[in-house]
Amino acid sequence: MPDETISALPEALPPSESHDAAPKTRSKAASVSYADAGVDITSGERSKQRIKMLARKTFNKQVLSEIGGFGGLFALDLEKFPQPVLVSSTDGVGTKLKVAFELGIHHTVGQDLVNHCVNDIAVQGATPLFFLDYLATGKLADMTVETVVQGISEACRANGCALIGGETAQMPGFYGDGEYDLAGTIIGAVNRDKIITGANIQIGDVLLGLPSNGLHTNGYSLARKLLFEVAKYGPDQYVNELKDKTGAALMRTHRSYLGVIKKLTAAEVVSGMAHITGGGITDNLPRIIPKGMGAVVDLASWTVPPLFEHLQQLGNVDQDEMMRTFNMGIGLICVIPAELVKKTKAILNRANERHCIIGRIVRGERKVTYN
């Protein structure tokens, strides 16, 4: 063996590696599970089984998969949609959830979520097909999750929409105990020649407003500040100006306009429709107005609900700020050609749908002017 090889060897093994050294005794560490980190998989599985039952109640013959797969399967009805265009939307409930946590009311927020998403695609002429939900929480509370999904399931059935999948995520340390976040995605379809974009809107068309149920799912950060911090109301406190308890006024469900929209689109009387959500009439109506046009809205044409009036009084909120933050009692605006207004009003009257003419389309630069 060459000398350089011998010199490269260690002179002796260190004590820890010597065959004669006494072996060290190691203490066995305690076993740590996922549950110790705050995620209860077993509880989560029990909850998922109950959620499956709720979702199945929304299924129709187009649903080809069970809840629990890696993806939901849905067969598009090509007889109903021979020239199909898919329409999608994703949204959440926002800080309305804070009021739900405070009151322990979790059933209606699922309805809020579905109805909001349904309206967003219905104003483009789309029929809802299926829905996916996402619920993330710190520590999973089985009954709370089930109650939320029950609301989602009921709203899906009411809107003819299948709940084909979703995700319930346990994220301890990210959300506080008893808190969760909620979001959803909806997919709908419309035949290409029935898409409503607002491209056919013309100067002189009439703006017809349909009432909201309340705040719906927008403006809650300001509303909570004014009611709970400025006025220092409790959520269970009856307020004369609201003619209701504070929490009840805030938790009124975001209504679905799908039924009335179907009647109007079937009669082919609408040139465009705007769902009035975050940004109010000020920011949402211009989204459908063609270039070179604007809208004039008459603020005296409808009665603003007491909730909005009281919020404005509490914070001395500027009118422009109110119109950009809240729906102010108008949840949907339909743009109707002047010659079809009479027909449209007859359709709405037969449907017992309250409505009012709130303005007109004029020449302008895609913005709303208030009178």
Score class of each variant (00 low, 15 high):
1 M>Y: 10
16 S>M: 06
19 H>F: 12
20 D>Y: 06
27 S>R: 04
32 V>I: 15
34 Y>S: 08
36 D>E: 09
37 A>S: 11
38 G>R: 06
38 G>Q: 04
46 R>D: 15
49 Q>C: 06
49 Q>E: 09
53 M>P: 00
63 V>M: 04
65 S>F: 05
69 G>L: 03
71 G>F: 06
73 L>Y: 13
75 A>L: 14
78 L>N: 14
82 P>S: 12
83 Q>R: 00
86 L>C: 10
88 S>W: 07
89 S>C: 08
93 V>G: 08
94 G>V: 11
97 L>K: 05
108 T>S: 14
115 N>C: 01
119 N>G: 01
124 Q>F: 09
125 G>P: 07
130 F>M: 14
139 K>N: 07
139 K>Y: 12
140 L>M: 08
140 L>D: 06
145 V>S: 07
151 G>D: 04
152 I>A: 01
152 I>E: 09
157 R>E: 15
160 G>W: 05
165 G>N: 14
166 G>T: 10
176 G>I: 00
184 G>M: 08
185 T>M: 12
186 I>S: 01
194 K>H: 09
201 I>W: 02
202 Q>A: 13
202 Q>F: 01
210 L>A: 07
212 S>H: 05
214 G>C: 12
217 T>G: 12
218 N>R: 01
221 S>T: 14
222 L>H: 02
225 K>E: 03
226 L>G: 02
228 F>Q: 03
228 F>M: 09
235 P>Q: 02
235 P>R: 08
239 V>D: 10
241 E>W: 08
246 T>M: 11
248 A>K: 08
251 M>N: 13
252 R>M: 11
256 S>E: 09
256 S>N: 07
262 K>Q: 15
267 A>T: 05
269 V>S: 00
273 M>K: 00
273 M>Q: 08
277 T>D: 02
283 D>K: 14
284 N>M: 12
284 N>V: 02
286 P>V: 07
298 D>M: 08
299 L>V: 13
304 V>D: 03
307 L>G: 07
309 E>N: 15
311 L>M: 10
313 Q>H: 08
315 G>H: 03
319 Q>L: 14
324 R>I: 07
324 R>N: 05
325 T>M: 10
330 I>E: 06
334 C>T: 05
337 P>V: 06
339 E>C: 05
340 L>E: 07
344 T>E: 04
345 K>P: 02
354 R>F: 10
355 H>T: 09
356 C>Y: 00
360 R>M: 11
366 R>C: 05
367 K>P: 02
367 K>G: 06
367 K>T: 12
371 N>S: 12
